[in-house]
Design a binder for these strands. Structure first.
Lengths: 108, 108
DNA sequence: GCAACAGTTTGATGCTCGTCAAACAATCAG
DNA sequence: CTGATTGTTTGACGAGCATCAAACTGTTGC
């Protein structure tokens, strides 16, 4: 099923660096980035992301910030949402940035 | 005069990635980063930084955020402050990050 | 000493943000 | 249809932030 719906997100050319940095300048969203760094799709459940201490609506809010900044993409399939990194788009727009960020981050 | 006083700043090992990203996730501070990218020392005068529209106290605030995040260093000489990038420290702590950021930024 | 200069600090204001709780929407299982 | 599941949206609240203005500190020059 390659043509599922996707939640609204900016075009690659419209991804703004300052907006991306603002999105990643928060500990929770950096944690999410690390989870997504494996390239796989992830559900939104807090317990699947090491965020048991946060309310699900809070996690939803952070994922919206990441998506609207252009960092992630969200595929809608039934009652599930599958979130993944827009790695190719980010590498196109900001070459080397994602690699530097992930290399700089403690792989806990 | 290599031993002028410096305003307080974190040790290289204590520079935190999320704090740096938060500091750079603001349009004014990103403008400052671009000014500092030439490696030279800069005064704090808003007019020397393309920030004529901002009050000097506002600029002072932004420079404090950058310094406390570990992005810049400030040398005190008489009644002047000379601000410059901590390029070596940042490259040590987060290899490739600064290069990616500067390459991604429109050189206006 | 005195005035001009460079920049910081403090206080105030309005806006944004992170968080939770409750209500809501949509889907799946029986 | 009913109830459980998955996630979003809205509203509220407190904390933090960007900004300006005014007061303040330290320095240079006359």
């Amino acid at each position: 099923m390659p043509d599922d719906e996707r939640l609204p997100q900016p075009d690659t050319a419209d991804i703004d660096l300052v907006t991306v940095l603002h999105a990643l300048g928060d500990p929770v969203r950096m944690t999410l980035l690390l989870s997504y760094a494996d390239g796989a799709e992830h559900s939104c459940a807090p317990r699947d992301l090491g965020l048991e201490h946060l309310h699900k609506s809070t996690v939803s809010h952070h994922m919206r910030v990441l998506r609207e900044a252009g960092v992630t993409t969200t595929r809608v399939a039934g009652r599930n949402r599958f979130v993944s990194l827009r790695r190719t788009d980010l590498d196109t727009r900001f070459p080397g940035l994602l690699d530097a960020l992930l290399a700089a981050t403690p792989r806990a």
